[in-house]
Design a protein around this nucleic acid. Sequence first.
DNA 1: ATGGTCGGCTACCGA
Length: 262
Amino acid sequence: MPLTLATWNINSVRLRAGLVARLLRDEAPDILCLQECKSPVDKIPAEVFTALGYTHMIARGQKGYNGVAILSKLPMEDVGDMDFAELGHARHVAGRLENGVVIHNFYVPAGGDKPDREINEKFGQKLDYLTGMRDWFHSERPEKAILVGDLNIAPREDDVWNHKQLLKVVSHTPIEVEHLAETQDAGGWVDVTRADIPSGNLYSWWSYRSPDWDTADKGRRLDHVWATPDISNAAHSSRILRDVRGWEQPSDHAPVFATFDL
DNA sequence: ATGGTCGGCTACCGA
């Protein structure tokens, strides 16, 4: 049976509930994972999503910052969350479908401006968060699982608009790319988006600060869909809905979609 | 080298 799943950093689920509804109506994924909801769970406008058939929601929230939610048409069981690097942030939640597939939804710390943990505590927290993920997947190797989210790292040269220029910019530094690769390897995760779209520049985020984001196209691929081999070995396809970045009052991220044949 | 724009929530922090 096909399963379509999407991940989208929404940058305030309350402000953009209408955009979420539009995406759900237009594209009708089975599951939509949101990050940066910036809302306590009880203030997420769940009734908007319920009315469209997304009657199951698994979420973690806090006031003003972070926050992750899984909206689903299919029944899901809440299987908990992790607080890597002990930040006390709502950055992860996981749910299990009735067929046993576990969905992990992550919002990895952005890491601040300076890529040096000695002068920027946030950068150290980002690396520590990834190390926590790595150690967890190493100790409990996932099976039949899909991991999505804003991982805040663009690992490949063609995941950024200018590789050389971004080597010292947080999100594309070698140490971050190395930490992400170790996390991926520890879980045996396959990068589904790049398995489906193996070459060419591919972005999921364009800064608000770029006046003409579409023409300038100074993007980065920060949002990812990974799966364990038992899932990725079957057929799948992917796309990034770039047009959504051009909607009225948009998020700075575009949704990333994947369809699996489970 | 710098500044550019957002959102949340109290006037600045985080992205």
